[in-house]
């Protein structure tokens, strides 16, 4: 796989996996406004998936489509961050997962709007507007719930503690990142940590949440080397219909 294809697949798998996770909330949110917002965010992410994986499939030039990539690959070929495949848990964990990712996603997309590859820059320009809204909304909920009742505070702190070991993977670069940085001027993950800290830490402080100690980071999602057990179950549901009737047009 070329570096470009890998890079695009990572972007598309991130949005696909999180979009799918959020769609699992359908009709089950804590309030009507949250149902609408969760569906809307999932919809944005699935739309971005169509663009990233559509481009990946074309760049790969093996005659596959975005749907083939989404519905036809097994766990080891997925390149999403481990953070995003983590199960929804309660609403607090779902929102915390989005919050941690949204601010990284926003920085990443801002960088991607500047790359020399026009198509990549175009997709990023469209997505960045949506993600700016996602980041605002998840931040608002993290503050509201972190600094809400005793129970909501406890749940948000639990969520942060539980998800923190998956934060580090977002900032670990590899040879694919280095190659796309050199070729197109794509953002280097290591460089995003400081601006991410600048964006996220004050919000967590405002939410009266304590940032966990420890820099340990689970890895293996973006390289595909070792996903968590959860992804396979997600794909079982997501891909079942497509796989049960091969070649069908829907």
């Amino acid at each position: 796989m070329s570096d470009l294809v890998t890079y695009l697949t990572r972007l598309g798998d991130n949005t696909l996996v999180l979009g799918h996770r959020l769609s699992e909330w359908c009709g089950r949110g804590p309030a009507l406004e949250e149902d609408i917002a969760l569906a809307n965010t999932a919809l944005d992410l699935i739309g971005q998936t169509q663009m990233w994986l559509g481009y990946a499939a074309e760049a790969e030039a093996k005659g596959r489509t975005a749907d083939d990539l989404a519905m036809g690959r097994d766990v080891w070929d997925f390149r999403n961050l481990l953070l995003l495949e983590q199960p929804n848990g309660d609403f607090g964990r779902t929102i915390m997962r989005s919050f941690l990712f949204d601010h990284w996603h926003l920085l990443m997309l801002r960088g991607l709007t500047q790359v020399s590859d026009a198509r990549m820059a175009g997709i990023a320009a469209k997505a960045v507007k949506e993600v700016a809204y996602h980041a605002d909304r998840s931040a608002e909920l993290v503050v509201g719930l972190g600094d809400g009742t005793e129970e909501s505070h406890r749940r948000m702190q639990d969520a942060l503690d539980r998800l923190w070991p998956y934060v580090g993977e977002m900032f670990i670069g590899d040879e694919v990142d280095a190659a796309t940085a050199a070729e197109f001027g794509a953002p280097v993950p290591d460089m995003l940590r400081a601006p991410w800290d600048d964006a996220v830490l004050p919000i967590l402080a405002q939410a009266t949440l304590t940032v966990p100690d420890g820099a340990f980071a689970h890895q293996g999602g973006k390289t595909g080397a070792r996903h968590t057990e959860h992804l396979g179950h997600m794909l079982t549901t997501m891909q079942w219909l497509h796989r049960a009737y091969p070649g069908a047009n829907w």
């Binding site: 799918h20 769609s23 359908c26 919809l43 989404a70 549901t237 829907w250």
Partner: peptide, 27 residues
């Protein structure tokens, strides 16, 4: 709920998006 029952199993990305948009409209 009856439509949410299929959001996670929609057969293509486009169908998933259309169904999500519909359920969002209903809310």
């Amino acid at each position: 709920l009856p439509e949410g029952n299929w959001v996670t199993r929609a057969p293509t990305l486009e169908r998933k998006a259309i169904l999500l948009a519909k359920v969002q409209d209903e809310a």
